[in-house]
Measured scan of single mutants.
Amino acid sequence: MQIFVKTLTGKTITLEVEPSDTIENVKAKIQDKEGIPPDQQRSIFAGKQLEDGRTLSDYNIQKESTLHLVLR
C-alpha cells in the first residue's frame, strides 16, 4: 500500500509499505529516499509519536494515510 510522509519543509514523500511493516522499517525506507538517519526521525500520526517496534497496523495506518516527519 502507499502512504505519504510530509516533512516540515512541506515536501511529501510517497512510500510503498505493508500494514505489517514496523515503524523502524518505514524510517529505513525514508532514509533510502531522503538520506535522513532513522535516529533523527520522529514520525507523528494523528497527533501521536510512533514507536519503532510497533507496526503500521498497530496505529491503524491505512493506505494513503499521511505521516508527519519531524527531525530531532
Rank of each mutant, 00 (worst) to 15 (best):
V17M: 03
L15K: 00
Q49I: 15
K6N: 04
D39R: 10
L15H: 00
P19T: 08
E18Q: 12
K11N: 08
D32A: 13
D58L: 02
V5W: 02
Y59F: 04
K11I: 09
G53F: 12
E18A: 12
S43A: 15
Q31Y: 15
K63G: 12
T22D: 03
D21C: 04
E16N: 11
D52Q: 04
K63H: 15
E64K: 08
R42Q: 14
K48Y: 10
Q49T: 14
R72P: 11
G10P: 00
I13P: 00
S20N: 12
I44F: 15
L67A: 00
I44Q: 05
V26D: 01
S43W: 15
P19M: 09
S20P: 03
N25P: 01
T55V: 05
I30P: 00
T7G: 05
E64D: 14
L15F: 04
G47N: 07
H68A: 05
M1F: 15
T55I: 05
M1D: 02
P37L: 08
H68P: 00
T66G: 02
E34A: 13
P19C: 07
Q31K: 10
T22Q: 02
T66V: 13
P37I: 09
F4Q: 03
I23H: 01
K6T: 09
L71H: 09
I3C: 03
L50V: 04
D32E: 13
A28Q: 13
T9W: 14
K33A: 12
K27D: 01
I36C: 07
A46Q: 13
V70Q: 08
E18F: 14
T9E: 11
Q2H: 12
P38A: 14
L56C: 02
P37W: 13
T9C: 14
L67Q: 00
G35R: 06
M1N: 01
D39N: 11
Q31E: 10
L8E: 12
D39Y: 12
E24K: 11
L67M: 06
K29M: 13
S20E: 10
L71M: 11
N60W: 05
K11R: 12
G10L: 02
G10E: 03
L67R: 00
R54L: 11
F4A: 03
Q31V: 07
E16C: 13
P37E: 09
T12A: 03
Q49G: 06
I23Y: 04
L71C: 06
A46V: 06
Q62L: 10
Q41L: 15
L15N: 00
T14M: 12
A28H: 12
L50Y: 03
R72N: 11
S65P: 03
I44R: 04
D58M: 04
I61G: 01
Q2L: 14
Q41R: 05
S65E: 08
D32L: 13
V5R: 00
P38W: 15
